[in-house]
Design a protein around this nucleic acid. Structure first.
Lengths: 145, 145
DNA sequence: CTAATTTCCTACTGCTTCAGTAGTCTAACC
DNA sequence: GGTTAGACTACTGAAGCAGTAGGAAATTAG
């Protein structure tokens, strides 16, 4: 159950968009530099976010990407589902009719519990929460000598 | 984040061992038949469980496998870690020194939360819990007309 | 109109992991 | 000593990951 770098990079990228929300579009190469991600690869990841409607693009000079909604209205589960799909994806969770013993399958209940535990975390957080935490971390740096 | 069939099969197999705990060793082919898993593949999965100490083997005729401890003493996180490794494995969670920005990385905190949410579920359950649920499911079948 | 800038789209590639399959070897029991 | 189990190693097709590459299309500035 390794987390893909698609998710890791994707989250960091959209967090940059959240931090700069309201300041106009942010370009791929800017994000790529800040987060030290390959330009071309990041392009694909952001296009995922775009096709799911979380992000909007502006083409041409001074173009780039920006969030379609304010960070406070973007829950992390939307992002995760876009980049990674359902956490703990199992055939019998998504298509119960597929497995004949599904109804009384005990292990299935375990997967379901794990899945809802993860979703609980993701649903309880918004991009704004992350932005706040990030800024909080920044300001603590100012106290350094 | 798809759950591997290694975990799915492995859990179902060790659950069979838990159900028959105390009745002597259970053979690969028996488990394979009951759970409809390839004989040879199951062999490998059980050897994983064996090498982590959860399961013991008896060779020769009337041999097979059995749990080393009673089901009530086997927490699900032991099994999961053996079969699948840490849930949401990320380099920066296991080796924080690897990433320079780890200390104030906000996304890292999200992965950590998700991981502990999943571990919480797995640590709160034992094989005995699954056995009880499975038997409960069985007895409810008896009420069918 | 044109050139520059930026996103958009598709294809390709090396690598690793998954999900098995196959075959032989070793231990235990009768 | 033969049968019945597990033990161990190697191999394989398929899929997904993590990029790389290259050009097309849109937008803006001059």
């Amino acid at each position: 159950m390794k987390l893909s770098s698609r998710s890791r990079y994707g989250f960091r990228a959209i967090l940059e968009l959240a931090i700069d929300y309201g300041k106009g579009p942010l370009q791929i190469k800017t994000i790529a530099e800040r987060e030290d991600i390959s330009n071309k690869y990041l392009e694909q990841l952001i296009s995922l976010l775009k096709s799911s409607g979380l992000v909007r693009s502006v083409r041409g000079p001074h173009g780039g990407y920006e969030l379609t909604r304010p960070p406070a209205e973007v829950k992390l589960d939307d992002i995760f589902m876009t980049l990674e799909g359902p956490p703990i994806s199992v055939e019998c969770l998504e298509h119960p009719e597929h497995c004949p013993r599904c109804m009384d399958c005990v292990t299935r209940q375990v997967w379901a519990k794990m899945q809802s535990a993860m979703m609980g975390v993701l649903e309880s957080l918004t991009l704004q929460d992350l932005v706040d935490k990030a800024k909080q971390g920044d300001s603590s740096d100012h106290y350094q000598i």
